[in-house]
Design a protein around this nucleic acid. Structure first.
Lengths: 262, 262
DNA sequence: ACGCTAGTTCTTGTATACAGGACAGCATGA
DNA sequence: TCATGCTGTCCTGTATACAAGAACTAGCGT
């Protein structure tokens, strides 16, 4: 597997950021299974750069907990434990409760309109089955609100947590879950517009809680994948073959209340 | 300045973590002024390693916002702006409020005893004018509570924020401030032992607020420093010369309510 | 036939070499 | 005298070479 199909980058070579972004995206789009080995040489071949840059990228990813670096063994996509998952969502609850509280007080009409447009984009992505875009938008909804509140420190922290959440919920993504999530985003906006602080808090907690409820399902997961395929095309690759590979048992898709991305 | 006095590491060479730790410590001990340039070659000479490791360390430090990497210019110790400082403390308030609330509910007697011992150590360091140890302990008090609550994700986030706080408050450290801080730690423990949730919240907010109150003073700062000196000896270097160099105007020390480390 | 050991090969960790941009200092001209 | 352009030097960014540990395979012994 994994014929090293090199990505020719027209202008010189790809930057470290691009590599980080590509790997993150590939992960978010479920083209890389949890625990996948990320060999340095292979990544070099794929991105057409030297190991120096690849290692920089892997270090960066390791610090955001997306990959685990085992000494003398190499880099592997993280496999969050249920306990770790619980803690990530707990952290989100803490931080987002405060962010939403502030936002409920400070949100301008322009902010709310922008958010509504965001949710519109979510729904479009869901309708058209654009899984990569959908996942991305469902996550960035929360980050955008943090940005609007204006605390960059908290925004950065939350962005990291959202990405980790995405990694965690990869296994139980489904169109239905995405749809639920998007509906809840709408409800949140409505409550914020009405300045109903307590209601916002309640909805937010429920929204995040929905994910954890199905967390026990993190277990059986897949094996075969092609590294070059997964990292092949750039941001939001959607060019080929089956709409999306879902290398896991299809059971998750049919569950009652599987919440994909909060 | 900065004669490259090499640190001979007996067993092979120092690891990346050690370099990170040394630079962080030097910063926390005020041996490096804000904005100081951290030249790669100089660090190589000081630690006796190649640029590879030094760059790894610098990247790590950049990630935790302790140094800023200016492209093609090099690495510099961060100089947090007042606005950034405000955001860091805001983030701490958000996270610590929740942590303390949980801790007030869950704290065991053993936890409280351990904390009291910690405060004892703080006071000892203050009495003996062990500035490095003092600063470290005043910061880790908060992290230890987070550890006791048991959420590793939140603990890691808070640890980063505490370090950044330390960087920010470097300019207004004083024995008096440290003493106040330690007293407030004691008051917090007492309130927690009494399980007085609201009181804990009030004390905590005041405790963190005290720092921000003097934040406007971040401006005039120093110039001359010796990189090799600053990074010379290992963890908690206290071997030489004047007790501690304070490369700033001495005014801060005499202020009414200068809060060093929350 | 199965398990253990030794050799080989592959991968990572570290150092070094090379290339290109940035800054400082000097010279030149207005 | 001051501003501006140039050049040399230093430093960073990137690639590559080398060393050492880990995994894999094959061979041997039981």
């Amino acid at each position: 597997m994994s014929r090293p199909r090199k990505i020719a980058e027209e202008n010189g070579s790809v930057s470290t950021e691009v590599i980080v972004e590509r790997i993150t995206t590939a992960m978010l789009e479920q083209r890389l299974p949890l625990g996948a080995k990320l060999g340095e040489e292979k990544l070099c071949a794929i991105f057409g750069v030297s190991r120096t840059k690849v290692r920089q990228a892997l270090n960066r990813l390791a610090r955001s907990q997306l990959v685990v670096l085992k000494p003398r063994r190499g880099a592997f996509l993280a496999e969050p434990t249920p306990e770790e998952a619980r803690q990530v969502f707990e952290a989100r609850r803490v931080i987002e409760c405060e962010i939403f509280a502030q936002f409920t007080r400070s949100a301008s009409e322009a902010d709310l309109v922008a958010l509504e447009r965001h949710v519109e984009a979510e729904r479009r992505a869901i309708r058209t089955d654009d899984v990569p875009l959908r996942n991305r938008l469902l996550g960035t909804f929360h980050v955008r609100i943090a940005e609007m509140v204006g605390n960059k420190v908290l925004t950065d922290i939350l962005a990291d947590l959202v990405t980790r959440s995405s990694l965690i919920t990869l296994l139980l993504q489904s169109t239905q879950a995405a749809s639920c999530s998007s509906d809840e985003h709408r409800a949140l906006i409505a409550a914020i517009r009405a300045r109903k602080g307590p209601l916002v808090q309640k909805l937010l907690r429920e929204h995040i809680d929905h994910v954890e409820r199905d967390l026990a399902d993190i277990d059986g997961r897949a094996s075969a994948f092609d590294l070059a395929d997964a990292l092949g095309s750039g941001i939001a690759a959607r060019k080929s073959k089956a709409p999306v590979r879902r290398p896991r048992n299809g059971a998750a898709a049919g569950r009652g209340r599987a919440q994909g991305q909060p």
